[in-house]
Design a protein around this nucleic acid. Structure first.
Lengths: 260, 260
DNA sequence: CGACCACTTGAGCCCTGTCAAATAGCGTGG
DNA sequence: CCACGCTATTTGACAGGGCTCAAGTGGTCG
């Protein structure tokens, strides 16, 4: 594996402001204080279409509900919830999981600031997975029917929405490839490279970062047990490819990692 | 696994006309003999939105290029091809595959009559997989930019396109679950149940059918080797769950299969 | 400082991949 | 219609990667 980038855009962004305001107030999507501030948001280049006019940008901001804070471990939505909105991660990160009927769960994705969440509900009108914050996070709430309405008028927005959905499709196809054909070491290497690339896109160091997820969550995402993930990290460490201290990761030889 | 259905719709359809006209003429998407005959197509309930007015239906038919015949083994499009159109399978079936850089390939889906192909290209403007006919087949060609234009005017169509894309997303999420958490026997059982359900939706017998794909393709799709697929079929046979003669399949105990 | 959780590491086993050989099935050409 | 050659499938024996179980370490938060 090598080509594990996430989203075509590469506009770098500055440091992301720490989220976490400890109040639990603005939790309802309904109470629409009109207007977000997309035009000044650091994540704009990731979740908004390019080339909107100022007027369109204003309409877009009017449509977006004020951001909601989700603390570490809390869920943004659950499988079966009625699908009303999609969510742009403004700060923090999430995992999405699907639950087997026997209680086993699988992580289907990790979503960083700038990613869009919730498109899994478009087809059936109900969400098909749970989205859970893996650190204190903030999301912008975008009512989907309003977005659809505006898409019928603004071509650039329509195409952007289509690209977002298309991106989700190819993201999953890549993951299927990983799960279907790759060995444990290749999977872990692919995971690290993917994360590295996405952090780079967001203006962070691609070589040194802090994992927000546990070994178990990584393993679930990659289709293996947490012990195996740990062993792979240890092996990479021994081989001088990475330097790990628990959740702190430093990639030492990115090329070798990509060659695995 | 149990809930492995494919698409919410369940309108049954009659027998599908045999495809295969041996001419290789109408191979270019460009030469638009105006008009398809969606309104009389047996697959209409699967690939077209419900509730279009007669006028909208006509516009839709005008937009669709005449169907193209793809013989067994031929490719409809390849990874890297510029994305222009999506395709509705009119008759026959396809596999989609992604190619690893080391030459290994993985099957990412099997697509029956009524399914839509090609949405993998929406994000980047290039297709991200190959689509190959696994029997003589026919597709309707739908230029995507024209579809997008019409979506801006017809809300029902817009929502249908969104549902199609959303469906692709949940289809892949289910497959990820399968690849990430299920054992070989569960995977093969899930595969048979899924296929059975889709055939039923299309008006065929859900209990007895002919596999269009080889053991190797099934294995590639399910993330295992062809020998393992074969062994699972043999085991199911021994246990009285199915009756297999090569590609001919009869499901004897669908509940037991679902309980695996 | 202690409890708890995440992580690491080891030992042994099992499922599935690998390799190999036999059989069945299918299309082609005579 | 049959023989031939090819490919697909089945089945067996064996090996190994990853899982299970278990113990021990480290880090964090009261």
């Amino acid at each position: 594996m090598s080509d594990v980038a996430e989203y075509p855009e590469t506009m770098p962004v500055g440091h992301v402001p720490a989220p976490v305001s400890r109040d639990t107030a603005a939790f309802t999507a309904a109470t629409a204080h009109p207007g977000a501030q997309c035009s000044s948001c650091a994540m704009q280049s990731l979740c908004m279409p390019q080339g909107l006019t100022a007027a369109e940008m204003e309409r877009m901001e009017a449509l977006i509900c004020p951001s909601r804070t989700i603390r570490n471990g809390e869920t943004l939505y659950r499988a079966g919830d009625s699908f009303q909105s999609i969510y742009a991660v403004r700060a923090g990160s999430f995992k999405t999981i699907v639950m087997h009927r026997d209680g086993r769960e699988q992580v289907t994705g990790f979503h960083l600031a700038g990613d869009v969440l919730g498109l899994d509900g478009v087809c059936s009108g109900k969400h098909s997975c749970d989205a859970i914050a893996i650190e204190d996070s903030k999301v912008c709430i975008i009512p989907f029917h309003l977005l659809e309405a505006m898409c019928r008028e603004v071509k650039a927005l329509q195409q952007h929405v289509h690209r977002m959905m298309g991106n989700e499709i190819v993201r999953e196809a890549r993951l299927m490839m990983l799960l279907g054909t790759m060995s444990a070491d290749q999977r872990v290497a692919a995971f690290l490279l993917n994360l590295s690339g996405r952090l780079k896109t967001r203006g962070y160091s691609p070589a040194e970062f802090h994992l927000r997820m546990t070994r178990e969550e990584i393993g679930s995402y990659l289709g293996m047990k947490l012990e195996t993930v740990s062993r792979m990290f240890s092996r990479f460490q021994k081989d001088g490819l990475v330097d790990t201290h628990g959740k702190q990761i430093r990639i030492l030889d990115i090329d070798a990692l990509a060659r695995i």
